[in-house]
Design a binder for these strands. Sequence first.
DNA 1: AGGGTTAATAACCGACGAGTCATTAATTGC
DNA 2: GCAATTAATGACTCGTCGGTTATTAACCCT
Lengths: 252, 252
Amino acid sequence: MARPADPKARNSLLHAARERFVQHGLKGARIEDITKACGLSKGAFYLHFESKEALFGEVLQEFGERVRELLSKHKAEVIEFFKTEGVPTTDEVHQQAPRYLRYIELSGKSNLAILELCWEYKDVIHIMVRGVQNTAFEGTAWLMLQQAMAHLGHQARVFAEKGTIRGEVTAGLVPAVLVGTYSMLCFQMIDMKQKPDFAVLAHGINRLLYEGCAPVAHHVASSEYEKVLKPSLLTSTEDCGLWAEKTKRRNS
Amino acid sequence: MARPADPKARNSLLHAARERFVQHGLKGARIEDITKACGLSKGAFYLHFESKEALFGEVLQEFGERVRELLSKHKAEVIEFFKTEGVPTTDEVHQQAPRYLRYIELSGKSNLAILELCWEYKDVIHIMVRGVQNTAFEGTAWLMLQQAMAHLGHQARVFAEKGTIRGEVTAGLVPAVLVGTYSMLCFQMIDMKQKPDFAVLAHGINRLLYEGCAPVAHHVASSEYEKVLKPSLLTSTEDCGLWAEKTKRRNS
DNA sequence: AGGGTTAATAACCGACGAGTCATTAATTGC
DNA sequence: GCAATTAATGACTCGTCGGTTATTAACCCT
């Protein structure tokens, strides 16, 4: 009884929009360019989407759900591991004990999954980080990074209590290192034509981090340590307010 | 013979502009708002600056010079250290030997200086990263990050050759960890009202990184390692093209 | 075939903001 | 005080782009 819409029009618009957003940002991308790329007119866009922002919001929602899903799964796995196997001790880290290595493997698997997801949505990440000036999505990326850091900070605290992480390495530093590193990897993805071997990277990062955080082995003379380093560097080991405040700023 | 310009007008504009840029981005900040904040009219802006972009370019230039200065100074210091003291060995890292600790201290000092500089220009950094969509400065931040990674990658390679960094931790990973971590710290600065104790952080990061990268101690049974971890995770230790290509994209 | 319905078009409107420029105000030297 | 000069003003132009809408085209059903 009526004229049906081109079944692939909506999808085509979505695709073209994401592409333009990467190139010019959410604000910089012109609706007419998006529609033109699909062989449609400007008006057609509004038959399928409320606005540019609504389109991007839809994609972002999808990505967000995938991320949350992954994070809660990882959280459950870690809790399960701690419950059945316990938290690896400092010595186990130094000795490369099976329990430590199993934990690293578990952690690496989860991080690998996150990297894979980031690869799938690399354009969205790129847009979120660099393409949403003065839109409703301003700050979304930063919010997600902060959430990720909070998520990881929780875990780091467990290790800190167990003594797996030495006091010198501020507990708040661990999430920053992890999130920072993964961010760098994500930022580079947009320029890669083919997917690299994330497994190696995820694994390497975890080992680097955990072994780097491990306290100095008991058998090592700690006197050397005191002799060389200026004590002034180490007086304030508390969090120096760096991770305290839950930021709030910028609304255009 | 002529009316002199208000001597503090230019500086006042610079200051107000940076503030607005942080809040609304380079494009989103309106010239009239900037001038209004200084009690001036729109036209006055053009007596002092070619355009908004020119103003920001001036500030950025200044920041860039300070950064380059610091990096080249650090490079010289490291070269000097390697020449007079040599590169710390794996065992020295494990034993927390004086030479290793001196190197960490040197490295920490330099990173501290960088953090201090970032604090001074935290608004500029914020703008560069999140406030230059569709301007000539698009991608500047990313470029600087890449340069920093290249700079650090050079150093990491020296350590890799000496065996201080184990092959498993991809050499390219080290710069990503460092730059990523420092980026996270910089991103947080804009929301802090007072300067935290960067010395503790800079020191902690360096130790975490170097000790995390150190190969497993000789006396530790590496058989455990092989037993638990799937070999598949470790087959491709090469750079998987992640750090190869010198990106080029996005020109509006 | 043709009437009804909806997709799609493109000319149009309106807001917004960068940059201009004729005009006015302030300051200096004589 | 007055002429000369330049700072400073703000109304104006102009291009851009998001969103609207009257009109046309395509399609389905009977």
